[in-house]
């Protein structure tokens, strides 16, 4: 949670501007993402500590889930093994989608450093999205998979039975990261108006964690609440990818959660653009 705000490393993520004009935009995206990947790969002790934390929480949540499932046999069509597997998929997703405390953009807006970012011949939102995808790639590969692997020694976890599930899952995870990025980006943009976003970020992350299925799978919620929650932008971050992994739907129905994710990607990124434009105009008018 705390390893995302090292000022000394944020500079490293900034490839030299002189080269920009010679580079294609896509290549720039890749360069930004690679820099972010390297940045997070350098916190080795934090990685080990993080994996241990996710594993510990996974064990605790599994116990609670098992306690319920043992009595009921199944919950909303999820068997005990499904629910435990879901806990561990989500422990990997938590850090991958960075549901916790990203305030870097907000701090840059507050300190005025965002003016430097805005001078770059590249869109601010696109820049940070590339950065976030690079970060997510590292977290998915190392911190995302490690708890699941460790847990498979302690529990019998469910693995996909269909080969197609693997690419679908990867797509779903990428979309989950983008939705989460879009929401985090929006909360950080609030800094244009209120200055310090830490309180807003703390508040929103608490709500997202609870309503995305991260602390308790949406399966446990009363049916009507579950149906509503599945239509909010939080389920696409946690519940949707784990459902894809569990092969909840059959045939073309398997594309449904991904379709829902896509819809929210369009919405959060679009709203982000509008809000960003207004915020930037504010800075230009007020002179920061």
């Amino acid at each position: 949670m705390r390893d995302q705000n090292h000022p000394e490393s944020s500079r490293r993520a900034d490839p030299s501007r002189a080269k920009l004009s010679h580079m294609g935009t896509l290549r720039l995206d890749l360069a930004v993402a690679r820099a972010a990947f390297a940045r997070f790969a350098s916190y080795r002790a934090a990685t080990v500590a993080g994996v241990a934390t996710n594993t510990f929480f996974g064990v605790l949540l599994s116990a609670a889930v098992v306690a319920v499932a043992r009595q009921r046999g199944e919950v909303s069509g999820y068997a005990e093994q499904d629910l435990v597997t879901q806990v561990w998929v989500m422990q990997g997703l938590l850090v991958t989608i960075a549901i916790w405390g990203w305030t870097e953009l907000g701090e840059r807006i507050r300190s005025g450093e965002v003016a430097v970012d805005l001078q770059r011949p590249v869109d601010l939102q696109r820049w940070w999205l590339s950065h976030d995808l690079g970060r997510a790639a590292y977290h998915a590969l190392v911190r995302g998979t490690a708890p699941f692997v460790i847990a498979s020694l302690l529990f019998t976890l469910r693995l996909p039975t269909d080969v197609a599930t693997v690419p679908l899952f990867v797509i779903s995870v990428v979309l989950a990261v983008v939705v989460s990025f879009g929401l985090r980006y929006l909360t950080n943009l609030a800094a244009f108006w209120i200055g310090d976003v830490r309180g807003v970020v703390r508040l929103s992350m608490a709500v997202w964690t609870a309503l995305s299925g991260a602390t308790v799978s949406l399966a446990f919620f009363p049916d009507r609440a579950e149906r509503v929650l599945r239509w909010l932008p939080f389920a696409p971050m946690m519940q949707a990818p784990s459902d894809v992994w569990l092969e909840r739907d059959a045939g073309m129905g398997r594309l449904a959660p991904i379709g829902q994710q896509l819809m929210w990607v369009v919405v959060v990124l679009g709203v982000g653009r509008v809000v960003q434009a207004r915020g930037v105009r504010r800075v230009v008018i007020n002179g920061g």
Partner: peptide, 12 residues
Amino acid sequence: DTMELTNSLTYG
């Protein structure tokens, strides 16, 4: 860099 480990014992 291991404050998160402490957090797992406290928040956990």
